[in-house]
Computed example of a mutant assay.
Amino acid sequence: MKYWNLKRNNQFAFEKVGPIPRSITNTFEKFRKELDPNGESEAIEEFRISRHQTITSVKYILLLFISPVLVNQASKFFVFGPCIDYLWNQEQPKIFLNSSQEERAFAELQRFEEKIHFEVLLNPSEDISYEIIEKRVQLKARELGEYYANESANAVKNILSDIVSIFVFILLMITGQRQIAIVKSFLNEIIYGLSDTAKAFLIILFTDMFVGFHSPHGWEVIIEVILRHLGLPESRDFIFLFISTFPVILDTVFKYWIFRYLNQVSPSAVATYHNMNE
């Protein structure tokens, strides 16, 4: 692609928010182009720029998200996996990495024992000795030990592979400054090109999803999954502290973005948002 295309993309990407709403300036710009005798050639040029911008943005977004995932899985299964499994079997470390794993294992073993006793009470005619029950409990305990040992090993693998993925992601961000500028322009055109109703709908959807009344339950599940993924203790105090602070910060960021940027770019979208949110 020619240099003027890249220059034009960079100009769109770093367009500043002015005192006049962008919708008004776009209307006058469109009217000016319709009266311009060279409007047809400019339209073809803008189409080429838009096509280049779209293709470049889609490719870079896919690269930005697929590459870390592929590196994560490859490093986990082919690099860290064999090493961790070998050391885990050689050293024979503790089965549990944290107290949360112990609590889950003990609770599951207790439920298994209660299930066996319940089955015995339901079928008193069957002659089941205490030794048989104890043997079944021991087998279940061994299964749980193997399961949580594998979970602990996987947690170590996840930490190492996630570090590599984050490094790859940061490297792509640093080396792709030009592509990031094009992606920013591409996303700005998509977001600000939506109708006022669509903008208001998306704002309400995301705010209610992440900072709304029911969002704490979702955040609780997400934090528990992340902590379990990394082999960290599932501290209820930490989870409740995160839920009580992070959504508030996120809500403040949303409101600041609406006040600082969207209110200047598209005041009608803000008015529609307030009307829909009432």
Rank of each mutant, 00 (worst) to 15 (best):
Q53P: 00
Q53T: 09
T54K: 08
T54Y: 05
I55T: 06
I55V: 10
I55A: 06
I55E: 05
I55L: 09
I55C: 06
T56Q: 09
T56P: 04
T56Y: 06
T56M: 11
T56V: 13
S57I: 10
S57E: 10
V58C: 11
K59S: 14
K59Q: 13
K59E: 10
K59D: 10
K59V: 14
K59A: 14
Y60R: 15
Y60Q: 14
I61Y: 14
I61N: 12
I61T: 14
L62T: 15
L62Y: 14
L62P: 11
L62M: 15
L64C: 15
L64H: 15
F65V: 15
S67T: 15
S67F: 15
S67W: 14
P68W: 11
P68K: 12
P68D: 13
V69K: 09
V69P: 04
V69L: 14
V69T: 13
L70Y: 03
L70I: 08
L70M: 07
V71Q: 01
V71M: 08
V71K: 01
V71N: 01
V71F: 07
N72H: 09
N72P: 00
Q73S: 02
Q73G: 03
Q73K: 02
S75W: 00
S75I: 00
K76D: 00
K76W: 00
K76H: 00
K76R: 05
K76P: 00
F77T: 04
F78G: 00
F78E: 01
F78P: 00
F78Q: 01
V79E: 00
V79N: 01
V79D: 01
V79C: 02
F80T: 01
F80K: 00
F80E: 00
G81L: 02
G81I: 01
G81Q: 03
P82T: 06
P82H: 07
P82N: 07
C83D: 07
I84M: 07
I84D: 05
I84A: 06
D85S: 14
D85W: 08
D85T: 12
D85N: 14
D85I: 09
D85E: 14
Y86G: 04
Y86T: 13
Y86N: 08
Y86M: 12
L87P: 04
L87Q: 09
L87N: 07
L87V: 11
W88K: 09
W88Q: 09
W88C: 05
W88D: 12
W88H: 11
W88I: 05
N89K: 13
N89I: 08
N89C: 08
N89R: 13
Q90S: 12
Q90N: 10
Q90C: 07
E91R: 11
E91N: 12
Q92W: 01
Q92N: 13
Q92S: 09
K94P: 02
K94Y: 07
K94S: 13
K94T: 09
I95S: 05
F96T: 05
F96E: 07
L97D: 04
L97R: 10
L97H: 05
N98R: 03
N98G: 03
N98L: 03
S100Y: 02
Q101W: 06
E102F: 04
E102W: 02
E102M: 08
E103S: 10
E103A: 11
E103T: 10
R104S: 07
R104I: 06
R104L: 07
R104N: 07
A105Q: 04
A105H: 03
A105Y: 03
A105N: 05
F106S: 11
F106M: 09
F106Q: 11
A107E: 08
A107G: 09
A107V: 01
